[in-house]
Design a protein around this nucleic acid. Structure first.
Lengths: 334, 334
DNA sequence: TTACATACTTTAAACGATTAAAGCAAGGGG
DNA sequence: CCCCTTGCTTTAATCGTTTAAAGTATGTAA
């Protein structure tokens, strides 16, 4: 089956490609194309099973109707959730999403961004990897439309959609305090990422505002493989923690696995609160109380902000969304 | 920052775009370009931060270096696994993957395939939705390179990579029999999909070969929301089943949730065996014995088969891979 | 009869790359 | 002095679209 393009249709009907293009783009009336001719063209296109070559169209129009999305790590629940939301919203607006995962690696992040730019995406939605400030600055200088999601760099002024991490963590901590926990441990990554550090700040401020003196060892800033030592440290002390606040679902997952292994009961032996929900929580014996990010909303806002940026240029949006605290049964309510 | 193309470099150096193109494509020697000129071109490209316009290149070369991937449902573990594998292998070969999910809907499947074709993907990797035979036949007639993964239609001769579902189910059932289970229930979707039906066939043949008379009610062909009734039916009978063989991880997940709700212990009250592993199994109190598909291998084979098809045309490959039975602790070994 | 509007349709130049083919200058052989 | 190489560079067509601008034919008014 040979390719059929405008030319083939034009020959078949006996007109020029221009006319075919007009008709097929719905400009038949505007361009005053003879009705019969228009009909002939339409039915020829149908009969020959014409498929416009989007590549040629993109080249001419300098518009690919494609968004590049870079997430931090495809395995995160956050990533699949936000991807889904973004794809849905993009599709509504007739955009395709091509995406890749940086695996939290700054170089891979830069590489993906470059690949997308070469493919002439109309804009980018990015969950930036740690230390990718330089790449972001480059995008600004190059005037490439982009919006950050989930993470932003406080000292670079960009468009972004994030969670109000401070508030979410504050509220979560407050909930633990209200349910009579007094020795609350926060388990977070050892990181420089602003959004994660904001969670620590929310946690600490909540303690402070409720007059609970903070102990340094309650704030565990670790890598995921160090969960066992960290939990041992805070759970077997003379004054063991009565609640574990995990700053991400991945940390919580590993934490819960460790608790299972140690046969520690949740919430009997220790209360657990998580940020976000992992699929894996579904079969844990107790529903995990967690702070839920509005992924749908984030994705929607991200796409819409980006499209505004692409179409009308030069807008500035910094959006903070609020998390919902979903009450499960993983915190003792005594 | 205005766009820099071949033209800008050419002007900057004072040569024609042809020369620039040659040098930038590593044909400097072949085309006997003056060494100094070549160097000037290269450094100009660097200095101006030249990025080739892949769209223009694709149009000219009639090659996009893009693969279209359609999965059945983004939420399946199988889908994320195979996507990951395919992306990895594609990247190794300098291909980009654009993908979409049909959500098991035949029309959405066809639509996605069309979008990809319009975008001039070089080939397709497809997990076909139920009843999409027509679309597959169309692709064959149009001579568009594609390979099916996971699912194939026995009466259409295509290239495909699947699991040997019959054998996997046979072996799994045999394991249950070997561990002294005699009333084994198979829970599968109500479907016409060949690969899923093969699992039933494997199950039944294993029973037959071990002289266990099959009872109709042991084979539950249902929709996922009917799990509760189905399990009630087979577990509360006068002669309740001693093992549940779930044909997919999704079914198993819902089954386990139901067992949790009913406070039925695994494997104390009933043994459980699953096809594939859901992330959610991680926090179940007992590791689930399951048949594991070699996703990495499938993805790799799919990409390589497709690339052969794209490059050398006209090959025919039907590949069946074997599953591994991963022994957990969800089957009583008495 | 001329002029001009109306109703269509075609021409041809883009978009940014690739690449066969042609062009040009210098040097060597006869 | 003419012709042919060799070494290097440019010209121009092409990929499949879009779209201003120009073209043509017919009808109508002055």
């Amino acid at each position: 089956m040979k390719k059929v393009g405008l030319k083939e249709i034009a020959e078949h009907v006996g007109v020029s490609t221009a006319l075919v293009s007009y008709v097929l783009n719905g400009q038949a009336i505007e361009k005053q194309v003879n009705k019969e001719t228009a009909e002939k063209i339409l039915s020829a296109a149908e009969a020959l099973n014409y498929r416009p070559n989007q590549i040629a169209k993109s080249l001419k129009m300098r518009k690919t109707h494609t968004i590049g999305l870079v997430v931090a790590e495809i395995n995160y629940r956050f990533s699949t959730g936000i991807t889904r939301a973004i794809e849905g919203e993009a599709k509504k607006n007739n955009y395709t999403v091509i995406y890749g995962s940086s695996n939290e690696n700054q170089e891979k992040f830069a590489e993906l961004v470059n690949v997308f730019i070469n493919r002439q995406v109309d804009g980018l939605i990015l969950v930036p990897a740690e230390h990718s400030e330089e790449q972001i600055r480059f995008l600004q200088k190059a005037e490439i439309p982009f919006v950050l999601v989930d993470r932003n760099f406080p000292d670079i002024k960009t468009n972004y959609i994030t969670l109000d991490n401070y508030k979410a963590a504050y509220k979560a901590t407050e909930y633990l305090i209200a349910t009579h926990h007094r020795r609350i441990c926060m388990v977070n990554y050892k990181t420089t990422l602003f959004n994660l550090l904001e969670r620590n700040r929310g946690y600490r401020d909540a303690l402070k505002d409720h007059k609970i003196p903070f102990k340094q060892k309650w704030l565990q800033s670790i890598n995921v493989e160090d969960i066992p030592q960290a939990l041992d440290h805070v759970l077997t002390a003379t004054d063991p923690c009565d609640a574990l606040f995990f700053a991400t679902d991945t940390l919580a997952l590993h934490g819960l696995k460790y608790l299972n292994r140690k046969k520690l009961n949740v919430p009997g032996d220790v209360s657990v609160l998580s940020f976000d929900e992992s699929d894996a929580f579904e079969l844990f014996y107790t529903p995990i109380t967690h702070s839920r990010q509005p992924l749908e909303e984030m994705g929607k806002q991200a796409v819409n902000t980006l499209l505004e940026l692409i179409d009308h240029n030069k807008i500035s949006k910094q959006i903070s969304l609020e998390a919902d605290l979903i009450i499960g049964k993983s915190c003792k309510e005594s």
